[in-house]
Amino acid sequence: MKAVQLGKYHAAPELVHVADPEINSPLDVIVRIGGAGVCRTDLHIIEGQWADKSNVDLPYTIGHENAGWVQAVGSAVTNVAVGDAVILHPLVTCGLCRACRFGDDVHCVNSSFPGIDTDGGYAEYLKTTARSAIRLDDSLQPADVAALADAGLTAYHAVAKAARVLRPGDKALVIGAGGLGHIGVQVLRALSSAEMIVVDRNADALALAEQLGADHTVLADGDQIEAVRELTGGSGAEAVIDFVGEGGAIEDGVASLRRNGSYYVIGYGGALHVPTIDIISTEINFIGNLVGSYNDLAELMVLAAQGKVTLHTSTYALSDFAKALDDLDRGEVRGRAILVP
């Protein structure tokens, strides 16, 4: 089969031919890829930022946002069948450790992460397990929802945390309305009645956020902190949901947080520098977010089937993976880029 593999860090991936995956365990599921999301994390992987964390052996196939159709199943698989359209939870988990037993499978101690530490979905086929496959509603197509497997799941995971504590009348500040942020805006609108403020440096992204349910939009033109303060009555927001995590967003977010507020970190690349006395004197909270659980993804698929969360996508052929990565790196992708074999 064709697959996009990274042969060495700081070098361009290549489209190569590799062996098709095979069923060798009763719970194995092989999926014919119908859409693979192109994520900024893929750029970070190519740059070597994940080398020490993933310890993956090169070369390997990248791509961790995957959906498609079931091609083959192991003898013990009962939740999906050949031909089913599915979206794949990004982790392959054991189901037996304490975290899995709690439904917190994102912290499985025996997990693998296709596209991060094992072969992923920039390919024609991907092997995963029954524990990762979620059958799609008949109204959904794999290429339309593939990026929800990570970008959408990450956004849902963080926003759902915030929504559990936000009350009517509270203010929620969303920083970044791009690939992840435009999903987060929709999830927040679906799960919470909090007043939503969205900040971005891109006017088009803000226009989209307004269409998707933002109550207020603020252009990051240097006066964004003052604008947010004015919109929150001078107190700041009860929740700051940061989909950027670099380039001044962290400093803006902390400055926009009210006393006893919570800062949800999703985007990364920068560093958090806050004096501990400021944390204890105002009782502010900093909450990290990776990807969500299988149940989180199943819930997100309900919102997608209801039309409450939709992806804005640009599709590329698998052979055009380099252009998709370059477009993403240059900030020219509106919403999410999707590779279609």
Rank of each mutant, 00 (worst) to 15 (best):
I183K: 12
D119I: 07
D52L: 14
G103N: 09
D144T: 10
N55V: 11
L166G: 07
A143H: 11
L212P: 07
S132G: 11
S112Y: 07
Y125D: 09
I116S: 10
G270D: 03
D20Y: 05
V165P: 00
A214E: 03
T41S: 15
L311Q: 06
I33M: 08
V92M: 14
G269F: 06
V38G: 03
G292D: 06
K8H: 06
T61Y: 10
E14F: 00
T217G: 03
G63E: 04
A3Y: 10
D52H: 13
H44G: 11
D138P: 06
G288Y: 03
L173Q: 09
T118G: 01
G34N: 03
R189S: 01
A337V: 08
Y9S: 06
H10N: 13
A207G: 13
I266N: 05
G292K: 03
C97F: 05
G181C: 06
I241V: 14
L303H: 12
Q186S: 12
F243N: 00
E299W: 02
S319N: 14
K127Y: 04
G292S: 05
S111K: 15
A123S: 15
D252K: 04
A237L: 11
G307P: 13
A130T: 11
A76E: 13
G179E: 02
V18Q: 05
I266M: 14
G34V: 04
L27F: 08
G34C: 03
W69V: 12
V185K: 01
L188H: 10
V340Y: 10
A133T: 14
A207T: 15
L136F: 08
L297S: 12
R40H: 15
D327V: 10
G121Q: 11
I30S: 03
D326C: 04
I45C: 10
D242A: 00
K2G: 00
D52K: 15
A190N: 02
I45A: 10
I250N: 01
V109I: 12
P275Y: 08
S192V: 05
A99K: 11
T61K: 13
G307S: 12
D329T: 12
K2T: 03
V187S: 04
M301H: 06
V185D: 02
G248T: 02
G115I: 12
D215S: 14
G236N: 07
G184S: 11
R334K: 13
D84K: 07
L58W: 10
